[in-house]
Design a protein around this nucleic acid. Structure first.
Length: 495
RNA sequence: GGCGCUAUCGUCUAGGGGUUAGGACGGAAGAUUCUCAAUCUUCAAACCCGGGUUCGAUUCCCGGUAGCGCUACCA
C-alpha cells in the first residue's frame, strides 16, 4: 500500500481532486472513466475525492440525472470523501468572485443583448471573420456602466482577456500548452440573470475547495487558458491540470448515444460485473508499468495508478475486450460474490429458482462460472439449471438429438438411472458408459444427447457434473421427456 | 474557417537513433473428443505521407494529411 504524499516546501500535503459531472444526462462512459481516474489518484496518494454537481445550467439539469449519476458511481464502487456540493447552492461564492473581478478591473458589465450578439456572430462568420465578442461594452466607462446597472438595466459580466501575450500551462499529461490571448474572447462570467457560467463556477469552486489536481477530459484543454487567467485574476494558487484523452466509438468519433450504450448503468443491465468494468475503463487511456498483467483488482490499480501512465491519444471503446474482462472476473470471483449479482439477474428475468438452499446455489454457480461471459447467462443459457421451463437451443437439438435411436436410448437410460442408488459423478458416468458399451454405442453420442436433453444447450459443463448438480429426479424426468424437447425446440417462425 | 491536441497490428498499447518492433483483446489454424463460449499449441497482423538532421530514422526536427477537441449569457 503506497501512502506517498506530496511534499510541498517540506510540508506533506495530500492531493485534493474532484469529479464534477453536470446532471444533464446519466453517468456516461467518459464521465465514469474521469471519475475512476480521480478516485484512483486520490486513493493512491491518500488524498481526498470531492463530488461536485455542476448544475448551473438550469434548463438542462434535473434531479433525476443527479440520482442517476450517484447510482452509477455507486454501482461502479467509486466512493467520494466530500460532497456532493451543488453549484446552484453556492451562487454567493460566484457572485462575490465576480464582484471582486469587477472591482479589480478584470471584468466588466456587458449590456449587449443575446439577440444582438447572435446577430453579430452570424454576420461575422458570414464575412469570414472569427465570431468573437468584439468588446463593445469593454470600452464603456466603468462609472457609466455602474450607473446603467444600478438603473436596472440587464447586464452580464464578462472577463477582460489581456489584449496581448500568451497564456500557457504545464499539463501533467500533455506537457506545455500555450494559447495566444488574441485567440481568446471576453467570455461571460455571470449571465444577466445573475447565474454563473461554467468558467466562473468551476474556478471559484476549485479555488474554494482547494483542489490541487484537476483531472478531466481533454475536451477541456481549450477552456483551460481562460481558467488559468481567472486563477491569476483571483490571485489564487494554480492547480495541476491533467487532461485525459477522450473515449471514442468504433468509428473513431466521440462516443455518443449513436454508438449504443453510453450510460454506465446499461452495462449493469447487460450483465457486466462492476469490477470488470472498472478494470476495463482504467486501461482505456492509461497503461500500468511494463510487465504488469492487465487483469488488475482495485488494490493493484490503486497501487499502480499515476498520471505519468496516461496516454495522449484518444482511445476506442472496445466492447469485445470488455466482454473478455467480464469473463475473467466472473471466473475469478467467488460464488459468494456472484450470488447476489445473479439473483438480480433472476429477478430481472422474472425467474425464481426452484431450489433455494444456499450451498447448492453456490456449488452450481461454481460449476457454471467458467463458461459464463455475462451475468445474464445465469438467467439465459444456464436457465435449465435453476428452473424447469427452459427453451432448448434448436441448433443444439439439431446437432445432438436428431437421431431417433439416440433419443430412445436416452429414455431407456433414464430407467437405469431411476433404479440406481449411486448418483455420484463416477457412478452416473459408469452407468452411462456401461450402457453405451452394452448397446454398441459410442458413449460420446449419448453424453452429448443427454447434455442437450438436460440443459437445452450444447455448451455446458461436464455431463456428470451437470447430473449431480441437477439431481436424480430431474435427470430421470428430463431424459424421459426427451421427445418433448423436439417440439419445444422449434424456432419461432415469422410468417 | 481559426486555434489547440494527437498519429505503432482491426482495437488497447509497450518500446525507442541500429530490435526478428513486444504484450493483451479480437481473428485464423491445430490439438483435445464429453459439448465449447473451456483448455493447450501455433499463425497472420502495425511504426500515416514527404522532406531534413544523421553513417543510420519508426524514434529527433519541419511540412503535409487525417482524426479529435474548442470556437455560446452549454458544461
Amino acid at each position: 500500500m503506497s501512502s506517498t504524499q506530496f511534499s510541498v516546501a517540506g510540508q506533506s500535503t495530500a492531493p485534493r481532486v474532484r469529479f464534477a459531472p453536470s446532471p444533464t444526462g446519466y453517468l456516461h462512459v467518459g464521465g465514469a472513466r474521469t471519475a475512476l481516474f480521480n478516485w484512483l489518484f486520490a486513493r493512491h496518494f491518500g488524498g481526498t475525492l470531492i463530488l461536485r454537481i455542476e448544475d448551473t445550467d438550469l434548463e438542462r439539469s434535473t434531479s433525476e440525472m443527479v440520482e442517476g449519476i450517484l447510482q452509477g458511481m455507486q454501482w461502479l464502487g467509486i466512493t467520494w470523501d466530500e460532497g456532493p456540493y451543488y453549484q446552484t447552492q453556492r451562487t454567493d461564492l460566484y457572485r462575490s468572485a465576480a464582484a471582486r473581478l469587477i472591482d479589480s478591473g478584470a471584468a466588466y458589465y456587458c449590456f449587449c443583448s443575446k439577440e444582438e450578439l447572435e446577430r453579430r456572430r452570424t454576420k461575422a462568420s458570414a464575412e469570414g471573420r472569427p465570431p468573437k465578442y468584439e468588446g463593445t461594452c469593454r470600452k464603456l466607462n466603468p462609472a457609466e456602466a455602474l450607473r446603467r446597472k444600478a438603473a436596472g438595466e440587464a447586464a452580464a459580466v464578462r472577463f477582460a482577456i489581456p489584449e496581448a501575450g500568451n497564456t500557457s500551462f504545464e499539463d501533467a499529461v500533455f506537457g506545455k500548452i500555450e494559447f495566444a490571448n488574441s485567440e481568446l474572447e471576453d467570455f461571460v462570467l455571470l449571465r444577466s440573470d445573475g447565474s454563473p457560467t461554467y468558467h466562473l463556477s468551476v474556478v471559484a469552486d476549485d479555488v474554494d475547495l482547494k483542489i490541487s489536481h484537476i483531472i478531466r477530459g481533454a475536451d477541456h484543454i481549450s477552456n483551460t487558458p481562460k481558467q488559468v487567467l481567472l486563477y491569476q485574476a483571483l490571485a489564487a494558487t494554480m492547480p495541476t491540470f491533467a487532461h485525459v484523452p477522450l473515449i471514442l466509438g468504433p468509428d473513431k468519433t466521440r462516443l455518443s448515444k449513436r454508438h449504443g450504450a453510453t450510460s454506465v448503468m446499461s452495462y449493469r443491465d447487460e450483465g457486466i460485473v462492476p469490477e470488470a468494468f472498472r478494470n476495463f475503463l482504467a486501461l482505456l487511456g492509461w497503461t500500468p508499468p511494463e510487465g504488469t498483467p492487465e487483469v488488475l483488482g482495485d488494490k493493484e490499480l490503486i497501487r499502480l495508478f499515476g498520471l505519468d501512465g496516461i496516454s495522449r491519444s484518444n482511445a476506442v471503446f472496445d466492447r469485445a475486450k470488455l466482454d473478455w474482462f467480464n469473463t475473467e472476473y466472473i471466473r475469478a470471483s467467488s460464488a459468494e460474490r456472484l450470488l447476489p449479482l445473479i439473483e438480480e439477474e433472476w429477478k430481472k428475468a422474472g425467474l425464481s429458482p426452484a431450489r433455494h438452499d444456499r450451498d447448492w446455489m453456490l456449488s452450481t454457480i461454481e460449476l457454471l462460472k467458467p463458461r459464463a461471459r455475462s451475468l445474464k447467462d445465469f438467467a439465459g443459457s444456464f436457465r435449465a439449471f435453476f428452473v424447469d421451463d427452459f427453451d432448448p437451443d434448436p441448433a443444439a437439438v439439431e446437432k445432438f438429438l436428431k437421431d431417433e435411436n439416440v433419443r430412445q436410448l436416452l429414455i431407456e437410460l433414464a430407467n437405469r438411472y431411476a433404479s440406481s442408488d449411486d448418483f455420484s459423478e463416477p457412478g452416473t458416468e459408469k452407468i452411462l458408459r456401461d450402457f453405451a458399451a452394452e448397446k454398441g454405442m459410442k458413449a460420446g453420442a449419448l453424453i452429448n444427447g443427454a447434455r442437450v436433453a438436460l440443459t437445452g444447450q450444447a455448451v455446458a459443463p461436464s455431463l456428470f457434473a451437470v447430473m449431480t448438480a441437477l439431481g436424480k429426479n430431474t435427470v430421470v424426468n428430463r431424459l424421459k421427456k426427451v421427445e418433448d424437447l423436439l417440439n419445444r425446440a422449434i424456432p419461432a417462425r415469422t410468417p
